[in-house]
Amino acid sequence: MASSTAKKIAAAKKFGIFALIPLAIFSIVLIVPFIRGIYFTFTDWDGFDYNNFVGFDNYAASLADEKFWAAIWLTFAYVAASLILVNVVAFGLALIVTLPLRGTTFLRTFFFVPNLIGGVILGLIWQFIFGQALPTISETFELPIFTENWLLSTETAFWSLVIVTVWQMSGYMMIIYITGLMSIEKDVLEAALIDGATGWRTLALIKIPLMAQAFTISLFLTLRNTFMAYDVNLALTGGGPYRTTELISMHVFKEAFGFGFFATGQSQAVLMFLMIAVAAITQVIISKRAEVQR
């Protein structure tokens, strides 16, 4: 009996030394706001206080908000375009810089550096490029494509966001693909060469299946980061022209802190969380299945 009490004390002491503080901070910062946030969506919360329970009214109001739907569709389009382009470009870059040639390390640096810089700074740089530099350059060299400021019309502003995202994220994903390519054993590639497999066939039938895990990770990270994108959106287009390029994240921010609709803003944020959770879990399940099938 005494020894079991002593054991319990020892266990509690261990918990106190190792786990108590980290878990307390985690709970205060993350778990408590998360649960309170869900709770508040069922009330008429105004940011500080609430008086009534309103059931699903906030969710109904969110779903009746046309601007919210516009932000959702725009985010889906943005995620889809970025997901494809970032990963195609990143994989292509990884293939280029893993060639057995001198100078490839040098190239890697160029592709990676945009990633080091925060979204706000990148957004501001590209605002200058799309707004000032490219129109002037197009005029000088008579290129038809960039004569107008791309940020001033909805469709081109959308593609500007995608371009900046590809430029920013492809270097990071390239590193993941390089890691994947390097993990393939040399013997396998030599065997394929002896069997007469050419470059493209080796790539499609051997390299890609053997590095499927790199695709799973890279797709997951791109999906998560683009769904949550805020900084580039803020600094590049600011949601304009006329609030037509607001991604979900910015919409939620404006709804709550801009217009003061805290309860509907929060219910939109909860919906955003559910969308990310469903998309991320679906993607991981599909990718894992593809990994196993090889």
């Binding site: 706001p33 946030g37 994240s249 955003m272 969380f273 990310i276």
Partner: peptide, 10 residues
């Protein structure tokens, strides 16, 4: 996978 946006308001 919880986005910061789902936490920032509360």
């Amino acid at each position: 996978i919880v986005p910061f946006q789902a936490l920032m308001i509360p």
